[in-house]
């Protein structure tokens, strides 16, 4: 499946490009991500995608297979699998940065092959998770650059959320900070009644095109794990 997302950061394009390709630093901007090791352009990364009360944890390799500093593009290949569970992920991500006045705009195109419980949620849900992640990533990236003193102003993330306090320039501390914030944001438990209502509303679409119901699907993700919860 193909996913597309965009973001914007109020920082110079070279600055943004350099930061994004510095995997060690940028990992701290991705909610739930953790850099486990490096081997040249191959980086061993873990990521926890947290939805409601449930987190799905993946581990795998991110390889930067192409970079063109002049064009501000890069291509990455991802291959990973669930740490607890049997799902797999294989993806190729194309990053393209462009200048828009003092803002840098980023476009990410991802061709992803998922299996396991994430795949069964359908493209709509995955796009939703992806957009949320990219939005948070952009916001955190801006805060990181701001902390470096390189950014003039805050970020204009895809989600339009205002930037919070600057992100620590220490990757580990930044990661912890991001995780804490994400946890706080996600702590909105879903009641059974809401689920039932959502399911009833969800009946208006077929599983092949459930994009509009991504939120509902995400709510149910929590229960996909059955006894694994907790």
């Amino acid at each position: 499946m193909r996913l597309e997302d965009e973001f914007a950061v109020a920082a110079p394009i070279q600055e943004v490009y350099a930061t994004i390709l510095d995997v060690e630093r940028v990992t701290g901007c991705v909610p739930g991500a953790e850099l486990l090791g490096n081997d040249g352009d191959v980086h061993n990364v873990g990521i926890r995608v947290k939805v409601g009360p449930i987190s799905m944890q993946y581990r795998g390799d991110v390889e930067i297979v192409e970079r063109d500093e002049a064009a501000h593009t890069a291509k990455m290949r991802v291959k990973g699998r669930e740490v607890r569970g049997q799902g797999t992920v294989e993806a190729t991500a194309q990053l393209r940065l462009s200048e828009d006045g003092s803002t840098t705009r980023g476009a990410i195109e991802v061709e992803v092959a998922l299996s396991g419980r994430a795949a069964s949620m359908g493209q709509g849900a995955i796009q939703d998770v992806s957009s949320k992640l990219v939005g948070r990533f952009a916001r955190n990236l801006a805060r990181m650059l701001e902390a470096d003193g390189a950014a003039a102003a805050g970020a204009a993330g895809a989600a339009g959320a205002p930037a919070g306090e600057p992100l620590s320039s220490d990757p580990a501390a930044a990661a912890a900070q991001v995780e804490r914030e994400v946890r706080d944001e996600d702590e909105n438990a879903i009641s059974g009644r809401e689920i039932v209502g959502a399911v009833v509303r969800g009946r208006l679409s077929s599983p092949l095109v459930s994009a509009g119901l991504a939120g509902v699907t995400l709510g149910l993700l929590g229960f996909l794990l059955g006894r694994r919860a907790g």
């Binding site: 069964s120 399911v199 599983p207 092949l208 699907t217």
Partner: peptide, 25 residues
Amino acid sequence: LLEHLAYDETGNPLAITFKDYLLPT
């Protein structure tokens, strides 16, 4: 009207909960 155990083109089943596999009520 409702039920469809759909697969995507790589063979992932897309309706493995009652949210996606819709039974009549």
